[in-house]
């Protein structure tokens, strides 16, 4: 079943900034490198520009200034080699395709051969066994998001971008997925960037957490998470984990205070 796995790249952003047409500054010039094979979480308050940052990395938004390089090349060439997968905040499943059909479409777009057994495996992994032939309209919001994650993993990307992937997933499933999913991309050595506003999720899933300020996004803190895995259950409540979580919260609060005086009262 082995197939070419795109080698995991590193991603470097140099003086990357984005100002929208109306003049809104989403991201102020930022320098950031995502290490190859690492999982990095971008944490920040809603609307801080972290999704914009992710979209620039994916080549979906053009930076106003600065550059993004993936494995030393611009994002476009990574896209052309289909070395990248993104799971969107909105699951973006095509409603006229079944769960399997949506995964197959991703493989087709990425010019990969579809392997039915592997698709079944992925579907089972995200807890959707029995729903392979179901259309998105008949799935709950959480189920749709899981299907979207399965789709993102199916093309075996070297770089995996996840934008609030568990937003609509219920607490219990989220815990399960947080345990199961990283195993897959870690085993493949994938470089993963995760955007989330959940501090606990960031600490549990990543090797590194970057805390962003409210808009325009600047880096408030860059924290290495060197906890042993698996991190679910008792491990999540360890002193080390608590300390790291507190540090993330502190950075978040500081960012809030700097950006807006009234918010600092909270």
């Amino acid at each position: 079943m082995e197939r070419d796995v795109t080698p995991p790249p590193d991603v470097s952003c140099t003086a990357l900034a984005k100002t929208f047409e109306g003049g809104t500054r989403a991201v102020d010039p930022i320098d950031l490198t995502f290490e190859e094979g690492q999982t990095t979480a971008l944490v920040g308050p809603s609307g801080c520009g972290k999704s914009t940052l992710l979209r620039m990395v994916a080549g979906l938004d053009t930076p106003t200034s600065g550059t993004v390089e993936i494995g030393g090349a611009p994002p476009v060439s990574t896209l052309r080699q289909a070395g990248l997968s993104m799971a969107f905040q909105d699951p973006s499943l095509l409603p006229w395709r079944t769960v399997r059909g949506n995964i197959e479409l991703a493989l087709k777009l990425a010019r990969h051969r579809a392997d039915p057994a592997e698709i079944d495996q992925l579907i089972a992994l995200v807890g959707l066994d029995g729903f392979a032939e179901t259309r998105p309209a008949e799935l709950s919001g959480g189920m749709r998001q899981r299907a979207a994650i399965a789709r993102a993993l199916a093309t075996r990307p070297g770089l995996l971008l996840l934008d609030e992937p568990f937003g609509a997933v219920d607490e219990l499933t989220r815990r399960q997925l947080s345990q199961d999913l990283p195993r897959i991309w870690e085993a493949r050595g994938t470089t993963a960037i995760l955007v989330t506003h959940s501090v606990s999720e960031a600490v549990q899933l990543s090797d590194r957490v970057i805390v962003l300020s409210p808009r325009p996004a600047t880096i408030m803190d860059d924290i290495t998470i060197d906890l042993p895995r698996p991190r679910a259950g008792p491990a999540a409540r360890s002193d080390a984990a608590t300390a790291l979580t507190d540090r993330v919260f502190a950075a978040l609060s500081k960012g809030m205070a700097e950006r807006s005086a009234p918010m600092a009262a909270q």
């Binding site: 476009v76 289909a82 993104m86 973006s92 777009l109």
Partner: peptide, 14 residues
């Protein structure tokens, strides 16, 4: 179609 469907296709370089 929502923008994200178009993004999806673009994210695979198509």
């Amino acid at each position: 179609a929502p923008q994200s469907w178009f993004d999806l296709v673009r994210s695979y370089g198509r």
